[in-house]
């Protein structure tokens, strides 16, 4: 996968993680599941999913969109 399509893919993942961090489809819903509101369970699951996605990004694609290929330059300490 090229750097560009990699960046597009991970940007799409980021957009989905942001868009559904609030379960909009449960708006006005007050159902209680196992002692907590259903929307709170969504939050628990979504944070866990985000942690997994971030972990995958960090191991597979870290540096996309930021690191440049010219080695050396910039007078790094």
């Amino acid at each position: 996968m090229g750097e560009r399509s990699e960046a597009v893919l991970w940007s799409a993942v980021a957009v989905v993680l942001v868009a559904l961090a609030v379960p909009w489809f449960l708006w006005d819903d007050g159902r209680v599941v196992a002692g907590l509101p259903a929307w709170l369970w969504w939050h628990v699951g979504w944070m866990a999913l985000a942690a997994v996605a971030f972990r995958a990004f960090a191991t597979r694609a870290w540096g996309v969109g930021i690191e440049t290929d010219q080695p050396g330059g910039g007078g790094r300490a």
């Binding site: 944070m47 866990a48 972990r55 990004f57 960090a58």
Partner: peptide
Amino acid sequence: TFGLWPVLVL
């Protein structure tokens, strides 16, 4: 650190 933010928030 990056992947641990959602966990800590939770």
